[in-house]
Amino acid sequence: MDDLYREVILDHYKNPRGHGVIEDADASAEGVNPLCGDEVSIYVQFAPDGETVDEVKFSGRGCAISQASTSMLMEMVVGKTAQEIAELPKEELLEEVGIPLTPIRLKCALLGLGVLKVALHRAKGTPLPQEWAGLDELELK
């Protein structure tokens, strides 16, 4: 069970990459995990082509799993286009996270990815897979 808190997770948890806020971001969204009240906001700045992610940041509060996986996500998506991120399978992030997760903790690990997809969906009209649609409806801001 302590595998959950292996070195790489703790590293991202204690030194999160891309933690912060982008003022006047090109795309942003906020999501809540109703199970635990965790909140995450994601901000995206595009390159001059208007499609490639130039900078991405996140803020909010959450458990080590959600904070670490969102931090890993920030590293994964810089340089990708909105369309590529919209098509990014969740398995790719979970592989990066690399720990066995129960269904409840899976929600923690995937909250950031869902919020990012919602932000891009709103800014660029990229497709939002069914499983994230609820997050878009939940989110009121």
């Binding site: 069970m1 959950l4 458990c63 080590a64």
Partner: peptide, 24 residues
């Protein structure tokens, strides 16, 4: 985060509640 506390305690066989306790 309480979820992390409860998760690590579980590995010790200890069950506690972590959450808003239906009292938001």
């Amino acid at each position: 985060h309480p979820h992390d506390v409860a998760q690590i305690l579980d590995s010790e066989g200890i069950a506690i509640r972590a959450g808003h306790h239906c009292c938001q």
